[in-house]
Computed example of a mutant assay.
Amino acid sequence: MASHIGKLPVTIPAGVEVKIEGQTFSTKGPKGSDSFVIPEGITGKVEGNEIILTPADDLRPTRAKHGLARSIIASMVKGVHEGYTKTLDIVGTGYRAQLKGKSIEFSLGYSHTITVDPPEGIEFELPNANQVIVKGSDKQAVGQAAANIRKLRAPEPYKGKGIKYSDEHILRKAGKAGK
């Protein structure tokens, strides 16, 4: 019995090249290129415009890796074709960001500004001073870069000030009751 997720084929969109050489999977598309080593016990092949992964045995560890490998490969194919984005909102009086070359300089209420350089394969966009868009072809790298920015000033529960994901809802706490 194979993994439910792992046995689903991954469709290759037009404009994306895929190669499987031994256990190495590589993909190239308009947004970049990426590679992944398929775990032992799993074989991959390209049939038409689909990628099919099959486990060599029915052991539970291989089945778990089968689904994970399929998800990673599907994310890579989507990333080199469409790319990934994460949007962060900066909330708070005087909190803002500005682009300095490829880096971003944040003013977050500290006595100093904080400069963040983009990791390789990641680019930052600032539609306005209170919004940062993180873009890239690697899903994990985009998420990690966004998490690192959010960590600079995580949103606090009383006024909601800080850096938050645009789709994140901050649970607010009631402050002290006035006299």
Rank of each mutant, 00 (worst) to 15 (best):
Ser3Met: 13
His4Ser: 14
Lys7His: 09
Pro9Arg: 09
Val10Thr: 15
Ile12Val: 14
Ile12Trp: 02
Pro13Leu: 05
Val18Asn: 02
Lys19Tyr: 05
Ile20Leu: 09
Thr24Leu: 15
Thr24Met: 14
Thr24Gln: 14
Thr24Asp: 13
Phe25Asp: 03
Phe25Thr: 01
Lys28Tyr: 00
Gly29Asp: 03
Pro30Ile: 02
Pro30Ala: 02
Lys31His: 08
Gly32Cys: 10
Ser33Gln: 13
Ser35Trp: 07
Phe36Trp: 05
Pro39Leu: 12
Glu40Ile: 05
Gly41Glu: 09
Gly41Tyr: 09
Ile42Arg: 04
Ile42Ser: 06
Thr43Leu: 10
Val46Gly: 00
Gly48Met: 08
Gly48Asn: 09
Glu50Ala: 12
Ile52Gly: 03
Leu53Gln: 02
Leu53Asp: 02
Thr54Ser: 08
Thr54Gly: 01
Pro55Ile: 10
Asp57Arg: 12
Asp58Val: 09
Leu59Arg: 12
Arg60Ala: 13
Pro61Val: 10
Thr62Asp: 11
Arg63Cys: 08
Arg63Gln: 15
Lys65Glu: 13
His66Ser: 12
His66Met: 10
His66Asp: 09
Gly67His: 10
Leu68Cys: 03
Ala74Cys: 02
Ala74Gln: 03
Ala74Lys: 03
Ala74Glu: 05
Ala74Phe: 01
Ser75Thr: 12
Val80Cys: 00
His81Gly: 00
Tyr84Met: 11
Tyr84Val: 07
Thr85Gln: 14
Lys86Leu: 07
Thr87Glu: 15
Thr87Met: 09
Asp89Ser: 12
Gly94Trp: 11
Tyr95Ser: 06
Arg96His: 13
Arg96Val: 02
Ala97Phe: 05
Leu99His: 11
Gly101Pro: 06
Ser103Met: 10
Ser103Gly: 13
Phe106Cys: 04
Phe106Trp: 05
Phe106Tyr: 11
Leu108Gln: 05
Leu108Arg: 02
Tyr110Asp: 12
Tyr110Met: 10
His112Gly: 08
His112Ala: 14
Thr113Pro: 08
Thr115Trp: 07
Thr115Asp: 08
Asp117Arg: 04
Gly121Pro: 01
Glu125Tyr: 06
Leu126Ala: 10
Pro127Tyr: 07
Ala129His: 04
Ala129Met: 02
Gln131Met: 14
Gln131Val: 05
Val132Tyr: 00
Val134Asn: 07
Lys135Tyr: 03
Gly136Glu: 08
Gly136Arg: 07
Ser137Ala: 12
Ser137Phe: 04
Ser137Trp: 00
Gln140Pro: 01
Ala141Trp: 02
Val142Ala: 00
Gln144Cys: 00
Ala145Tyr: 01
Ala145Lys: 02
Ala146Trp: 01
Ala146Pro: 03
Ala147Asn: 12
Arg153Tyr: 08
Arg153Leu: 14
Ala154His: 05
Pro157Ala: 14
Pro157Lys: 13
Tyr158Arg: 15
Tyr158Ala: 11
Tyr158His: 15
Tyr158Glu: 13
Gly160Trp: 11
Gly162Ala: 03
Gly162Pro: 03
Gly162Asn: 00
Ile163Lys: 01
Ile163Asp: 03
Ile163His: 01
Lys164Tyr: 03
Tyr165Cys: 06
Ser166Trp: 09
Asp167Gly: 12
Glu168Arg: 03
Ile170Gly: 07
Ile170Pro: 04
Lys173Tyr: 11
Ala174Thr: 04
Ala174Pro: 01
Lys176Ala: 10
Lys176Cys: 06
Lys176Val: 08
Lys176Arg: 15
